[in-house]
Design a protein around this nucleic acid. Structure first.
Length: 568
RNA sequence: UGGGGCGUCGACAAGCGGUAAGUCACCAGCCUUUGGAGCUGGCAUUCCCAGGUUCGAAUCCUGGCGCCCCAGCCA
């Protein structure tokens, strides 16, 4: 291989560029931040991580590794009412699973509560913050509107001494929830509402998952976030678009405090078709039992996708492919599916499983005989080797693989037609047996002993190759098929008076409890992944118990027959 | 006559004054013991619109139009 080819290959493998990399490279070139790149992923522990967070995680950790920098994990735990340690644990597990490592740099905004308090005192002393006695309602009224300026609070001009005293007493619990707040003293007529004397602290007599009962006042996110980044000396604070107009406020804080100024860059959050991504909505789906939990395989949560069978690599590749930009966008769910198929195709063990069994008796096959046939484990990877699969007189095939009166383009089994049983024999359907209702209960076929392994010595061709399972040797299994959680690409596309919940797809879960799988799967463990030949990728669900296999369908194989059938 | 953003193929997304990358989806063909995978080819004479600058504009200027975010003591 010449060097040009090498160069080409390298180029092809390179992660795509984006506007944030351009900014970072510019900063590096100018020697800013001593040429450090230090990012962070700052989740609030009030819910489970979803695929949208994965985009941000891959971005932040990816950038750090690409530029030999560091990425911290920091929990933004400033609201004890909504936050729980259950969530911090799940978040840690999910990020690790995705394949990222923050070394010893696991932080919490609550680590900085003391520092933040001191910063607030400094602002008070500088006449840049004050204690306000207005109620929440009054504060809202005084704030003005989008088009009209706000009005200054009557408490805005208290002396530094009085403010200090009041603030200290807020801290020690002297006042009730909501009685007072600490506000920054900026500009009540600013066009940017965030600059109209934002609240810094509120009184919240609630125990915190880490600081316990130590605090009666808690910092607002806006007050905590930028300073936390500053304290950690984050060079590039990446966040989503809605924080764009908070940036001037964050800069006002760190500049007036005289501390390190991180650079905030905003990018568009991920939206995916056929699902919802807001934590509020995901929480509602869980709480109101529209799904079975945060890790329901239909959920776009990382725990849901994991249980569904997605691999970390597939999610990382997906995150890379969606790109980073500032434009609001909604990514086609098919891109996510493509990413798993791509990974699983290369790595998943092939196995034969019949989802909807139809009994087939091979009349000329010797009664009581069993053969062990050689089957390839993964045609994409010769090193995966092969396995033996038992064949016998009575087998099951897929109901959908037989049609009594087939349309022109249907190549599979039909009366009088010959097809191949994968890795086994050619069989020809000789008889169709039905019950009193006319339902097909069984097929009679003959086989050609000369076609053992699936090749006809006389060179005769068949149009179809079908999967099968020996009735006597197969294992019974439950298989859960999943479809989109919502019927519409955009769940918010509703008629007057309806809500996104009315777009829930009630057929998103289909349970098949009489599936048959070849014995190879007998010892599989939760998380094991397979390709069921001709059908899709499946993984073992944690509900699996001894003697009761449960599979989740991660994603189906692309199905060109389904397309043809649909067209009629 | 509030502020902040954004408009490039059905969906994402490069492009940074030199004549529209790539990916998904889709279509056609080849190949095939998975109607899978793979391979080949097709898929924006044009970048929201209108003017202007320039030899040359998706890129620069002017003016429109459209979409998103902000009035939590949530993050």
């Amino acid at each position: 291989m010449d060097s040009l080819d090498n160069e080409k290959n390298e180029k092809a493998r390179e992660a795509p560029s984006n506007f944030i990399k351009v900014i970072i490279e510019e900063d590096l070139k100018l020697g800013r931040n001593d040429s450090r790149v230090h990012t962070r992923f700052p989740p609030e522990p009030n819910g489970y991580l979803h695929i949208g967070h994965a985009k941000s995680i891959c971005l932040n950790f990816g950038l750090a590794s690409e530029y030999n920098g560091l990425c911290n994990l920091r929990f933004d735990d400033t609201n004890p009412i909504k936050e729980e340690s259950e969530y911090v644990e799940s978040i840690i597990e999910d990020i690790r699973w995705l394949g990222f490592d923050w070394g010893d740099r696991l932080f919490y905004a609550s680590d900085y509560f003391d520092t933040l308090y001191k910063y607030a005192v400094k602002l008070i002393n500088d006449g840049k913050a004050y204690v306000d006695d207005l109620s929440a309602d009054q504060i809202r009224q005084y704030r003005g509107t989008l088009t009209e300026p706000g009005q200054e609070s009557p408490f805005r001009n208290r002396s530094a001494g009085e403010n200090l005293d009041l603030f200290q007493r807020m801290k020690s619990g002297e006042f009730e929830n909501g009685a007072k707040v600490l506000r920054a003293r900026i500009d009540m007529s600013h066009g940017n509402l965030n600059m109209r004397d934002p609240v810094l602290y509120r009184i919240l007599k609630a125990p915190h998952h880490r600081t316990g009962d130590k605090w009666c006042i808690y910092p607002m996110y806006d007050w905590a976030h930028g300073q936390s980044d500053s304290i950690e000396r984050i060079t590039h604070s990446l966040c989503t678009l809605e924080f764009e107009d908070h940036r001037p406020l964050y800069e006002w804080f760190v500049q007036n405090l005289g501390i390190y100024v991180p650079r905030q860059i905003e990018f568009a959050r991920l939206n995916l078709t056929y699902t919802v991504m807001s934590k509020r909505r995901l929480l509602q789906l869980v709480k109101e039992s529209y799904v079975k939990g945060w890790d329901d395989p239909r959920m776009p949560t990382l725990s849901g996708l994991r249980r569904r069978g997605f691999t970390p690599v597939s999610i990382r590749n997906f995150a890379e492919r969606v790109g980073i930009a500032k434009r609001d966008s909604t990514v086609d769910y098919a891109l996510l599916e493509h990413a798993v198929r791509e990974d699983l195709n290369k790595h998943a063990q092939r196995v034969m499983a019949v989802l909807k069994p139809l009994k087939v008796v091979i009349e000329n096959y010797p009664e009581g005989q069993t053969e062990q046939l050689d089957c390839v484990n993964n045609p994409e990877n010769p090193d995966a080797g092969s396995r033996k699969v038992p064949f016998s007189k009575v087998i099951y095939i897929e109901r959908d693989d037989f049609m009594e009166d087939p349309p022109k383009k249907f190549f599979r089994l039909a009366p009088g037609r010959e097809v191949r049983l994968r890795y086994a024999y050619f069989i020809t359907c000789t008889d169709v047996i039905k019950d009193e209702n006319g339902q097909i209960t069984e097929l009679r076929c003959t086989y050609d002993p000369a076609t053992r392994g699936g090749d006809a010595p006389d060179g005769r061709k068949v149009r179809a190759t079908m999967h099968w399972v020996s009735a006597e040797h197969s294992l019974r299994a439950e298989v859960r098929l999943y479809d989109h959680l919502f019927r519409k690409e955009d769940p918010d596309d509703v008629e007057e008076g309806k809500t996104w919940l009315d777009n829930l797809n009630h057929g998103s879960l289909e349970i098949l409890d009489d599936c048959r799988i070849e014995p190879y799967a007998a010892d599989s463990k939760p998380g094991d992944r397979f390709q069921f030949e001709r059908q899709g990728y499946f993984c073992i669900d944690p509900d699996t118990a001894p003697g009761h296999l449960v599979f989740n369908r991660t994603v189906g194989l692309r199905d060109s027959w389904a397309k043809i059938a649909k067209q009629g």
